[in-house]
C-alpha cells in the first residue's frame, strides 16, 4: 500500500496504472520495507508524506516510470546515437589529434638547448621586454633543474595547441555575436553552460565518444572549457567600441569590412587580448583535470601525488603549474600592455 494509491483511485486511473504491472527490479527501499514488515504501510503520518516524485508515484502506479529509468534512458539514448555521432565528429576532430601529437612530439624531442632559446625568442617577440624574457628563462631553467622539463613541455604543448584553436574559433564567434543580437541571445546561454558545468562533466560524454588513448579527447575538453572568455571578451570588446568613432566611420563612408578590420577589431584588441590571456589560464587549469583521461604533462604528476599520497611529487608538480601559469600570464599581459600603449586614451 503506497501513499498516493488514493490519488490514482479517485482519478479513476487504477486500470491504466495496472495495465503493465510487471514487477521491475526491486529497489533497495522496497527491500528494506519488506524486511521490516509492512505493518505500518498505509498509515503514513503527515510528517512522513513523501514528495510526489517519480519514485513515490511509481509505488502507487506502475505505469509511471522511476527516476532511474530517466538516467538509464539518457544513457541508452546517448549510446544509441553514439555511433552516428562518432561518424561525424571523429573525422572533424581528427586534425586536433594530429596537432596535439605532433606538437607534443616536437616540443619534447627538440633538444632543450634549442627549445628553451626558441621559447625565449617567442617571449621577446610577444612582450618586447628583457625583464619578462629573463623571468621566463628563470622559470624554465628552474623546472628543468628539478627534472620537470619534459612534463612542463608536454603541458605547454597542449596549452599552445588548445589556446590557438580557442582563438581561431573564439574570435570569429565573438565577432559574429557582436554583430547580431539574436546570435548573442543564443550563444550566451551556451557559454554560461560551458562556464558553469563542472569540468569533470565534460569528460563523461567524451569518454563514451572517443577512446581514452586519443589526444583529441582531452583536447576537446580543454577547448570547450577554455574558449568561453575569448568569445565573451571579443563580443564585449567590439560592442564597447566608442559609438562616436563608429559614427565617424559611417559618416566617411566606410564599408562594413573596412569598419570591422580598420576600426572595430583594432579598438577591441585590448579586450580580445584579455580574453586570450584568460583562455590560456583556463586551459592550464583544465590540463590537470584532463590528465585523468591520459593528457600528459605536469597534471599526471599531480594525479600521482593524490593517488599514491606522494606529497612531495604532487606539491612540486603543482607548484610547477603555478610558475608556468605566472610565466604565461606575464607574457600575455606584456603584449596587452604594448597594445594599450598605442591607444592610451581609455
Amino acid at each position: 500500500m503506497a501513499t498516493y494509491d488514493g490519488l490514482f483511485d479517485t482519478l479513476g486511473l487504477r486500470d491504466w496504472c495496472d495495465t503493465d504491472a510487471s514487477d521491475g527490479p526491486m529497489s533497495m527501499a522496497d527491500l528494506m520495507a519488506r524486511t521490516q514488515g509492512g505493518d505500518e504501510a498505509g498509515t503514513t503520518a503527515l510528517r512522513d508524506l513523501p514528495f510526489p516524485s517519480l519514485d513515490a508515484l511509481h509505488d502507487a502506479c506502475n505505469a509511471i516510470p522511476q527516476t532511474r529509468d530517466l538516467t538509464s534512458g539518457l544513457e541508452t539514448g546517448f549510446l544509441g546515437i553514439r555511433d552516428a555521432l562518432r561518424v561525424v565528429v571523429d573525422p572533424l576532430t581528427q586534425p586536433l589529434s594530429w596537432a596535439l601529437e605532433n606538437t607534443l612530439w616536437v616540443m619534447t624531442e627538440t633538444p632543450w638547448w634549442i627549445m628553451i632559446p626558441l621559447l625565449l625568442l617567442a617571449t621577446w617577440a610577444v612582450g618586447r621586454s628583457w625583464k619578462i624574457v629573463g623571468f621566463v628563462a628563470a622559470i624554465l631553467a628552474g623546472l628543468a633543474f628539478v627534472d620537470h622539463y619534459e612534463v612542463a613541455m608536454q603541458t605547454l604543448a597542449i596549452i599552445f595547441v588548445c589556446a590557438f584553436i580557442c582563438v581561431l574559433f573564439g574570435v570569429p564567434i565573438g565577432i559574429a555575436m557582436s554583430r547580431s543580437d539574436r546570435l548573442q541571445n543564443v550563444v550566451t546561454p551556451i557559454l554560461d553552460l560551458l562556464q558553469t558545468l563542472p569540468p569533470f562533466v565534460y569528460l563523461i560524454p567524451l569518454i563514451f565518444l572517443f577512446s581514452v588513448t586519443e589526444p583529441k579527447l582531452y583536447g576537446i575538453a580543454v577547448i570547450l572549457y577554455a574558449i568561453v572568455p575569448v568569445v565573451r571578451l571579443t563580443n564585449l570588446g567590439i560592442r564597447l567600441v566608442d559609438a562616436d568613432v563608429i559614427e565617424a566611420a559611417d559618416a566617411f563612408g566606410m564599408t562594413k569590412s573596412q569598419k570591422l578590420f580598420g576600426v572595430q577589431i583594432p579598438l577591441a584588441l585590448p579586450n580580445i587580448m584579455a580574453g586570450v590571456n584568460q583562455t590560456i589560464m583556463m586551459s592550464l587549469a583544465m590540463v590537470v583535470i584532463a590528465s585523468m583521461v591520459s593528457a600528459p604533462g605536469l597534471g599526471i604528476l599531480v594525479l600521482r601525488g593524490i593517488r599514491n599520497l606522494e606529497l612531495g611529487v604532487g606539491l612540486v608538480a603543482g607548484l610547477g603549474i603555478v610558475v608556468l601559469a605566472i610565466a604565461l600570464d606575464r607574457v600575455t599581459k606584456a603584449s596587452l600592455a604594448r597594445i594599450d600603449a598605442s591607444q592610451a586614451n581609455r
Partner: peptide, 30 residues
C-alpha cells in the same frame, strides 16, 4: 556611400578620431 566618401564630410563634437591611428592617418581617413 559615394556621397559620404566624396561630397559630404563631417566634424564631430567629440572629435571621433581613430585612437589607434596617427594624426596623419586620421587626416587621410577619408
Amino acid at each position: 556611400r559615394k556621397l559620404r566618401r566624396e561630397s559630404m564630410s563631417m566634424v564631430f563634437q567629440k572629435f571621433a578620431l581613430l585612437p589607434h591611428r596617427t594624426v596623419l592617418e586620421n587626416a587621410g581617413m577619408a
